[in-house]
């Protein structure tokens, strides 16, 4: 199930963002926000009580107008204020159902966007921590880590028994998608590590064991093979922020604002009441 979802969402976002990899990340973010805005408008338009929302919004507007129309009538204005608050609560209630329905696809969208916008690839010569989380005592394990020629393992493994964790520091030497190979109990699997890259690069921060929620949260690489005593291999990439006219912001804020703007701009065109 998780594989199907990840495949569907992963391929969709790959297709969507592939043409914009070489461009400023804002271009890709704008396109994604537009598509997300349209998608959500379509879903919202279908699952929400459009007439109910319009009726409640009209009531809010009416009572706001009352504040203006009856400004000399203290009783009317206090009643109007009460009614605005009452209908505002109703408005929020009207949005509960679409909110709960949309939260699932939107979490999946946000996970995908985090792959593209959440992290910065290593620069050549830059080092990063690599963590392997095991489900057994790491001091008793024969686990080893090997790097492809474009990487250099700078430190011997640091085994932290209490965390069931083994850490290395790895340096990126050459640009490209490099590979780390983890060998344990006679089996091997790889974890990709991105050095340099285009302005918009998909980065898998972790490869995880085949558990449903973990797979959904780390969808870019296949699961760690079964019967391997490793839960997760994680690379602690530096976070990436969007920059606009010198102002830096988390990508989710940019996404929120842009999708809101597109949603607002297009709701009339699609006849959706929000």
């Amino acid at each position: 199930m998780a594989s199907v979802i990840n495949l569907l969402f992963g391929k969709t976002f790959d297709l969507l963002l592939y043409p914009f990899q070489s461009l400023n990340p804002w271009v890709g973010m704008t396109v994604v926000s537009l598509v997300a805005g349209l998608l959500v408008l379509a879903i919202y338009g279908h699952i929400s009580d459009q007439e109910g929302i319009k009726a409640v919004k009209d009531k809010i507007k009416a009572h706001l107008l009352e504040l203006r129309l009856y400004k000399d009538n203290f009783r009317a204005t206090t009643r109007a204020q009460r009614d605005v608050l009452r209908y505002n609560a109703k408005y929020l209630y009207c949005n509960l159902k679409p909110m709960f329905v949309m939260i699932v696809p939107f979490i999946l969208i946000i996970i995908q966007l985090d792959l593209w916008f959440g992290y910065r690839p290593l620069s050549p010569g830059e080092s990063v921590m690599v963590k392997v989380k095991m489900d057994q005592d790491p001091t008793q394990s024969d686990l080893t880590l090997q790097a492809s020629p474009g990487l250099e393992i700078e430190t011997p493994p640091l085994r932290i028994e209490s965390e069931k964790e083994i850490d290395w520091r790895v340096k990126g030497l050459e640009a490209g998608v490099q590979t780390l190979t983890v060998s344990v109990a006679g089996q091997s699997f790889t974890k990709q590590l991105v050095v340099s890259g285009k302005p918009l690069t998909k980065i898998s921060q972790a490869r995880v064991a085949d558990r449903f929620l973990d797979r959904l949260m780390s969808p870019a690489e296949p699961p760690i093979p079964p019967n391997v005593p490793v839960n997760k291999v994680e690379i602690l990439y530096a976070g990436q922020e969007m920059s606009l006219l010198g102002y830096r912001m988390h990508w989710i804020i940019a996404f929120f604002i842009l999708s809101l703007v597109f949603g607002f701009g297009l709701k009339g065109f699609f006849g959706v009441e929000v």
Binding site: N88, L92, N95, I110
Partner: peptide, 22 residues
């Protein structure tokens, strides 16, 4: 709602604006 897209995001923004205005 602010986190789940334009539809519900607007609900949040509108409600907040309304509350603020009132």
């Amino acid at each position: 709602m602010a986190y789940i897209g334009p539809g519900a995001g607007f609900a949040f923004v509108s409600s907040f604006f309304t509350l603020f205005l009132v």
